[in-house]
Design a protein around this nucleic acid. Structure first.
Lengths: 332, 332
DNA sequence: CTGTTAGCGCCTTCAG
DNA sequence: CTGAAGGCGCTAACAG
């Protein structure tokens, strides 16, 4: 079925040299006289030789592959990250093995195991939970890890994220500056780094302005669209619900706005939102007055570079947690 | 740096058996007496042994890895596909190497080369262009390929796509049924399978209803958001522009609606759209009356299964092009 | 049921 | 400047 493909050995024979010489030519090891190199190249072309990276990896113990794990692949945030990481890494000859942890630490551990067995040179990961113990095994095998977007406990590791607390503080403060005194919070489980930090920023802004946070007006669902929809619906169904809300992420924002555009359209002109993330479809989010824009592409590029530097050994020593700044954008 | 990790040989010594036996235990080859197997398993646990898949792949000529190439990673359509393929493939122990062709046949060829060198067991690809010659090399090396969403010329290969012509015909006909006589087309380059087939469906619906298609009211930009925005803007700036439009895909739809929600808000209540794709943010697309829903997750799952069947040899013979049906959805 | 023995395709000293 | 030779870690006949 799969016909035998030419090897370095076939090339060597055809060119009348040794396999060592062919290897040198392929790898640009200078010490080969031009004439010999030309012969080798001709043989390569004639035979349609293609390198077997698997064999090379076995020998060199490097696969030029990095693993990427995210709680879910189908999210706008993740795909923008993936795209910028791909851009950065493929430019250096690396491939990306992407996989989903399905928001489960158990699945995450399995994926890590899989990646380690495949001898990936490094891993970039959005942790599914704050549990980080299972990442240790990978690190102990000498595989560098970079976290992105979220942190995990019990783990000493490089990470790239944004100033979530500050961004949420700014957005909430802007609403307060506009005269809103009662501001709700549409969020996700505080067990997730981003949701928790953004909640803290929201709380600080409220506290500094001397405003009370009514527990009824904080919703902690998930970070998904349905949760945003449900939280918004439930919130507005209460008598005396606030008119202004801080929304924890893009998906909750879409969900909340979906509600306001359909079942909840009676509230559409009254509700004002301030939310994390700026997306291609942001102009459609008609109730949004402020958005906290994260530099998603830069996060991906930076994480990729940090990982490359660890892989190539040009980065040593203590792990570093980099916080990028967000930008507050006022709409319409 | 990277400390030597235990090999099958260390396990063999520690358990007092041969490497062959260890291999048998690992691979669940039944013919090992339970007692021996237990000893081996104990040794594996004690040493923290982990299989080296690279070495195994060199021997078995199978990597349990499939390559995925798309014109761009950051698109909702692709991410939904990727997620369903991941679900299907990871259940069978396969990993996904994803990469972007950046809409260029040249880059696509490079990525294919990279994947072939890495000895992927198969490739799923959304072709960047209709040029398919460079895919041949991969096929000739015995690596099965499945196309998805688009076709390519000069290529005999399995493919999964939808009935683009029929979906567009249905949507356009629905607009006609609502009484619209002048209907515009917001599209992408006809060099792309989906755009061309959808255009044909639009044209057929118009022709069958005896309606004229004014060339000024067809726009062939790209399949991106900016193009949808620009096409809509330009179209509406003409005197006597139609009120109804067929829109070729989700990104054009978002772009067109972005225009209608911002600069073009004067037209917002007049314009009616019928567009391909149903997305999580669809409720936000306020001018949309009809959408043609593609079964994206099924497309991914089906492509993945077809590829697996080819890889495992349970599928043989002539390539097959599967067309899934779309569903017309009426909004509001 | 288990062990011995060849490689898979490549890289890399070490000699020449 | 080039060649010979020994693995990298694992599997798969083939013996026993």
């Amino acid at each position: 079925m799969r016909e035998r493909t030419a090897t370095i050995r076939d090339v060597a024979e055809s060119a009348g040299v040794s396999t060592a010489t062919v290897s040198r030519v392929i790898n640009g090891d200078g010490r080969v006289v031009p004439g010999t190199a030309a012969k080798v190249r001709r043989a390569i072309a004639e035979l349609g030789y293609n390198m077997n990276q698997v064999a090379r990896s076995l020998k060199t113990r490097a696969t030029r592959t990095v693993g990427v794990i995210a709680p879910e692949l189908a999210s706008d945030f993740f795909m923008l990250l993936a795209e910028s990481m791909d851009r950065e890494l493929s430019a250096h000859g690396y491939g990306l093995i992407v996989c989903s942890s399905w928001e489960s630490a158990g699945e995450e551990a399995k994926r890590l195991q899989l990646l380690a067995e495949r001898l990936v040179d490094g891993v970039v990961m959005i942790p599914a939970t704050e549990k980080g113990r299972h990442v240790r095994g990978v690190q102990e095998r000498g595989i560098p890890v970079v976290l992105i977007d979220r942190l995990a406990r019990d783990l000493s590791v490089d990470a790239v994220l944004v100033d979530n607390e500050g961004g949420a503080y700014e957005a909430t403060s802007a609403l307060i500056g506009d005269g809103f005194r009662r501001i709700g919070f549409l969020g996700g489980s505080l067990a997730v780094t981003t949701a928790r930090e953004r909640h803290e920023g929201y709380r600080r802004a409220m506290a500094e302005a001397g405003l009370a946070v009514e527990p009824d007006f904080e919703r902690f669902g998930s970070l998904h669209i349905e949760s945003g929809y449900g939280s918004m619906a439930e919130m507005l169904s209460r008598p005396g619900a606030p008119d202004a809300y801080f929304v924890v992420n893009a998906d909750n924002h879409v969900g909340a706005t979906n509600y306001l555009m359909t079942e909840g359209r009676a509230y559409r002109d009254r509700v004002v939102l301030a939310a994390f993330d700026e997306m291609p479809y942001s102009p459609l989010l008609q109730c949004c007055r402020y958005s906290v824009s994260q530099p998603i592409a830069e996060m991906g590029a930076l994480a990729a570079r940090m990982l490359l530097d660890r892989i190539e050994g040009s980065r040593q020593g203590e792990p570093e947690v980099v916080r990028l700044k967000t930008t507050l954008i006022r709409h319409g």
